[in-house]
Simulated assay, not measured.
Amino acid sequence: MHQINQPMMLADLLESQLSRPATTRERFRLPFSKEDTVRVLLAGVKAEVERRDKTFIMREAIMSQAGQIAEWLTGNHSKFGLMLCGGCGNGKTTFVKAFQQILNKLDMKIDDSTERYSIRIVNARDLARVCKEDYDERRGLCYKRMLAIDDFGTEPLEVMDYGNVLYPITELLTTRYDRHLFTILTTNLTPSEIRPRYGDRIADRLNDMMGKVIFANSTYRTP
């Protein structure tokens, strides 16, 4: 009788364990209200613009973009990535750099450790070089807690390394998707252009992990 019940008891145990909610890393959120996050984002954008010896002008588009980004940074939702989409020179990278400066100023500890929150910004084109030349850096980017990839879509889809075909952006995004790692992309691609370029597998993962903010305004860069 004991031998008959043992598989049943094991099945009950497995069912109980599998029914428990999975333990996942809590998504990062700024410790502010949405309204206060808009304020600090705009202050950061203004500082970035003035750092380039330009004059910051508050525009309706900037207010809208700041509001959407602030919602993502403070909201109670499952998206652990953010994609900023739009044409050249319309403020996407400036917002990412503003967020980077906010983190640097906050000097927030990660849990109870001595490590602080920070975000690395890397240009997508540099990923091809890193993928080919520096395995340790490539692995570090894949697993970095917070990462921003600027100009997503400008990188080669594959690179050759002594006869081996490597897929820099595909491998990196797959790893970050699987581990629910905080990731920001800026891109000139429209959402409809991503699937033909990267295929269903990456497009579906990006849809699942990424909130989207569309930068529909024209370039701020003047001749």
Rank of each mutant, 00 (worst) to 15 (best):
41 L>G: 01
150 D>R: 03
219 T>Y: 05
72 W>T: 07
7 P>N: 11
74 T>E: 07
60 E>D: 15
199 G>A: 07
201 R>Y: 10
145 R>D: 12
69 I>F: 05
68 Q>P: 05
122 V>L: 09
22 A>I: 15
200 D>G: 07
74 T>M: 02
108 M>L: 15
1 M>K: 12
159 V>M: 05
109 K>R: 13
29 R>H: 02
166 L>F: 08
122 V>F: 07
222 T>K: 15
113 S>R: 10
223 P>V: 06
209 M>A: 15
47 A>I: 03
114 T>P: 06
172 L>P: 03
165 V>D: 04
43 A>G: 01
130 V>K: 03
117 Y>I: 10
30 L>R: 00
71 E>S: 09
94 T>D: 11
113 S>W: 08
147 L>A: 11
131 C>S: 12
144 K>V: 14
197 R>H: 01
199 G>N: 11
19 S>V: 00
220 Y>V: 00
167 Y>D: 00
63 M>S: 02
61 A>P: 03
66 A>D: 01
57 I>Q: 08
184 I>G: 01
8 M>W: 03
200 D>L: 06
127 L>C: 05
195 R>T: 04
65 Q>W: 02
196 P>A: 05
13 L>M: 05
52 R>L: 09
207 N>A: 14
54 K>I: 02
43 A>Y: 05
181 L>V: 13
60 E>G: 03
168 P>M: 12
78 S>C: 03
62 I>D: 08
92 K>C: 11
34 K>S: 03
108 M>K: 09
101 Q>S: 14
120 R>L: 12
5 N>W: 11
140 G>N: 14
100 Q>M: 13
104 N>S: 15
44 G>I: 13
133 E>T: 08
154 T>N: 11
106 L>D: 02
34 K>N: 02
77 H>T: 00
30 L>I: 05
65 Q>P: 02
10 L>C: 00
50 E>I: 05
128 A>S: 15
39 R>E: 09
99 F>K: 13
51 R>T: 09
179 R>I: 01
201 R>D: 01
129 R>T: 10
99 F>R: 06
194 I>F: 02
197 R>Y: 00
178 D>Y: 04
35 E>Q: 14
22 A>F: 12
156 P>D: 00
10 L>M: 01
136 D>I: 04
95 F>G: 07
160 M>I: 08
209 M>H: 11
133 E>M: 08
175 T>Q: 04
101 Q>L: 05
119 I>W: 09
6 Q>C: 08
50 E>D: 03
113 S>Q: 09
21 P>R: 02
156 P>G: 00
162 Y>M: 00
150 D>A: 09
81 G>H: 07
143 Y>Q: 11
100 Q>S: 13
132 K>F: 10
88 C>T: 14
220 Y>L: 14
191 P>D: 04
196 P>T: 03
105 K>H: 12
126 D>Q: 14
72 W>C: 05
53 D>F: 10
